[in-house]
Amino acid sequence: MTMAGRTASRTGVAGAHPPPAARRDLGWIGIPLVAVAGLAAFWLLPDDLALLTRIAASALFVLSLDLVLGYGGIATLGQAAMYGTGAYAAGIAAVNWISDPFALLAVGGLAGGLIALVTGALILHAHGLTLLMLTIAVGQIVQEIANKARDWTGGSDGLSGIDPAPVLGLFRFDLYGRTAFLFALAVLVVALMVARRIVRSPFGLACRGVKEDPLRVSALGGSPKSYLVALYAVAGVFAGVAGALTAVTSGIVGLDSAGFPWSAEALVMLVLGGTGRLYGAVIGTAVFMGIHHILASSDPFHWMGFIGLFLIGIVLFLPGGIASGAGRLSALLSALARPGRDGGRA
């Protein structure tokens, strides 16, 4: 029967690759690498600290999307709803009541998590296109509320006048953006560690199960929707912190922080770096915003054409993103390096 053929060929595959669990155990290296790369950029590019700060905060936002999409399989075009909520919450708090940067991040995270929890519970029963539309709609509503609540948010002029106190009471946010960048980098690194913890926790394991086969999870007694809602809320906290981080380090919050284009851009950056790997979010964001910065200074549209072609290429030729391309390449190389062993096993 066909079973026999399948069995044989699968044994061959199993022999050729190292088990993925063993590969994933090296994942922690990515986090110190991010820290080192960030510090290196700090020394090498002292004139681009504003850009680097934006990259760090955006990477945190894209990381939140990776939690949702890469570990829960939720395709969303509305992640900016949580980012924008966090940014406005922190911004409003900063203008009116609080100035400690960590407290502002907490406010942003709380706001992002809450809005994600509420909207997630409302919309995550849906799938596919319907869910996509619902996430877009949530983003539009948040943006519209921010637009209309001018007294609080400044409406289309944006919210400015955010003036956070020194970090830990020691480090002022200086004119050159040094404190801002190091603060953002530190937050990103800590967030990566927390995210890594979460995806390797029992909860993360269950979410991966839901992503692959929700019905099988319910056959194990789990409720797929409650995992997804919880994951959405957790990712909302990350997105909210990212928004707050942007508000704190840049001093302004604009309407576009909750907009559809920002959600879509985050998706593009994530896919660029590869989903379901955490540090893929950082790679994708750095590559996207870095090249954007270089190309856009000549003409923003060249940049769009380039990234558009890139996206099309990824969908057609490389469905797992840059990181998967690298992974596949190394698997191919290692397979080529020991043909004898594989031949012997097959």
């Binding site: 395709a75 998706l267 054409g305 558009g308 072609l309 996206l311 990824i314 969908v315």
Partner: peptide, 19 residues
């Protein structure tokens, strides 16, 4: 294929905007 659809058609949109 909804994720692939979103990515591919966003990519196409960018290319058309640039063009």
């Amino acid at each position: 294929n909804e994720l692939a659809q979103v990515l591919l058609t966003i990519g196409l949109t960018f290319v058309i905007v640039a063009g």
